[in-house]
Write a protein that binds this DNA or RNA. Structure first.
Lengths: 108, 108
DNA sequence: CGTGTAAGGAATTCTGACACG
DNA sequence: CGTGTAAGGAATTCTGACACG
C-alpha cells in the first residue's frame, strides 16, 4: 500500500552538506528554519537533519530571495502550495471511497 | 539522456547517520571500507560521505556477516555482481549501436 | 579475522549575541 | 529584515594502536 519511505524524504543530511548542496550559508539555513520555511528533523540534543526534499525547497527559497521576495511571503506561498496538495490528496481519497462503496466490498 | 544523478547515489550521509540506519558501529563501517567492501566519498581532510545505495549495501553486508560469511568472500560476491552488471550494460549499448548503425543515422 | 575501546586532535554544529542597514 | 561574525561549548569524526581470540 505505502510507497517506501523513499530516499527523497528521509532526513539524513547534515547542515554542512546542505550548505554545499544549496550554496546557502549555515546561518541562512538556520534562519529560514526560524522563519518556518523549512523543517529539519531536530532530535533532542542532536544535530539538524535534512532530506533531499528539504534541499530542493531551500534552492527554491534561494531563488525567491534573489528576486527579493521576503521570507514572510515565501512562507505564505509554501503554505498555499501545501494546502492545495492536501486538498488534492483528500479528493483522491474520497473518490477511492466512492468506488469502494459501490464496487469494492463484495459479500456474496 | 542521463537520468538525474538521483537521490540514491548521491554521497551525502555522514557515518553517524549511516550507523543509525544500518545498526552497524562506526568501527565496523570503517573496517568494511578498509576491506574494500564499501567506498564512501573521501574529500581531502574531510569526513566520509555515504549514499543510500551504500547504506543498502552495508545492510546486505551485515546480513552476510551474520551468516558467518567472511569479508573476503563478501568482496568477491560484490565484485562478481558488479561485473555482471557491467556486462549487461555493455550488451545493451552494443545492441543500441547495432540499431543505430542500421536505422539510426539517416542522411537523405 | 573482526570488533571493542581509550586517546588526542581536528572539524562540525549549536546557541545567543552584537552589528549593519 | 536578512545576514555576517566572534565566542565558547558540546558532539562528531578521524587515525593509529592495543586487546582478544
Amino acid at each position: 500500500m505505502d510507497h517506501e519511505p523513499s530516499y527523497k524524504k528521509r532526513k539524513v543530511i547534515t547542515i554542512g552538506v546542505v550548505s554545499e548542496l544549496t550554496g546557502l550559508t549555515e546561518r541562512q539555513i538556520r534562519y529560514y528554519e526560524q522563519r518556518k520555511l523549512i523543517f529539519p528533523e531536530r532530535p533532542e540534543r542532536g544535530n539538524r537533519k535534512y532530506s533531499f526534499s528539504d534541499v530542493e525547497r531551500l534552492i527554491e527559497i534561494a531563488n525567491k530571495r534573489e528576486e527579493g521576495v521576503r521570507t514572510h511571503e515565501i512562507r505564505q506561498e509554501i503554505m498555499k502550495k501545501n494546502k492545495e496538495e492536501e486538498e488534492r490528496k483528500i479528493k483522491k481519497q474520497m473518490l477511492r471511497g466512492q468506488i469502494n462503496a459501490r464496487f469494492g466490498i463484495q459479500n456474496d
